[in-house]
Design a protein around this nucleic acid. Sequence first.
DNA 1: CGGATTTGACCCGCGC
DNA 2: GCGCGGGTCAAATCCG
Length: 318
Amino acid sequence: MEKKEMVVKTEDAVGSSSIPCYNSNFYPFSNAFDFSEVEKSSLGFMELLGVQDYSPLLELPQLSTVSVPHHSTVKVPSDNGKECSEVLNHQPATPNSSSISSASSDAVNDEQKMTLDQVEEDDDEEEEEGQQKTKKQLKPKKTNRKRQREPRFAFMTKSEVDHLEDGYRWRKYGQKAVKNSPFPRSYYRCTSVSCNVKKRVERSFTDPSVVVTTYEGQHTHPSPVMPRSGVSAGYATNFASVFPQAGNYLSQYQQQQHHQQLIFSTLSSLGFPCNDSSSPKNAGFTQERRLCNPGTNAFLRDHGLLQDVVPSHMLKEE
DNA sequence: CGGATTTGACCCGCGC
DNA sequence: GCGCGGGTCAAATCCG
């Protein structure tokens, strides 16, 4: 596609001061790497995701990683997707790197000053508007659907199953073939009325054992599916409680701190020089990790989260 | 029978 | 303006 243009756009978004507060912390790679070079080398994971949005991290409501007994999961920046993923895939981080996570939203990016609540309100209004128009013009679909995106968060999960149980109920509303990927992308919407959360699920074609789940929006209701006993219960509990509503309870500072810990731990465990390599919060993740790629596993063992982010071929190259 | 899924058509944004 | 790709709609179909 328009890779180079996307690179430019990314650098604008990432490297400029348009991203408030966390610029240097949350987009550390932008200054350190030549995205255009990276782009040439291979397809980024987020490119596979199609996650191309970026939004200020001020709006980041979720910063937690999720661990699953049966799926090793890591939160991935759905940021400006491509470039960030490229960084993740190909480049070591600088010592100051602190984030592989971000929110994403084309629209939100345009309205960086909006709060999440404001975004949601606007979405509600526009949704009604759109629905009305849709109903009016059934066949000649002229729904005037403005693309108003909520922040997105992507999780990469090693799993045999595409659609992971996360404590919420989803209705599939679409499926599309993904360019450059043999695996289709599925679109889900939260079944709860007045809840506009969506998620996309697709499998990485570079590592088919990895399922990428991208969430968009914020649940306006508690998880309807109470966790059962057993392994999946922990996942549901953890996920439903932490994501996507964690942002309601965590201060930005806490989020950043937590996130930085995650990243530091991850990077440092991969051999990247990080100041803070001790992250107790990560212990659970590494312990619960289920690693699917033997070769990768041997290399990574119980290291940090990046092994889920970094395609196996990348790791082998290292 | 009602809810969920499938799937082709359509819309939108973007790059050329 | 056109084409492409992503995202969504909604009728048809499936399934419990």
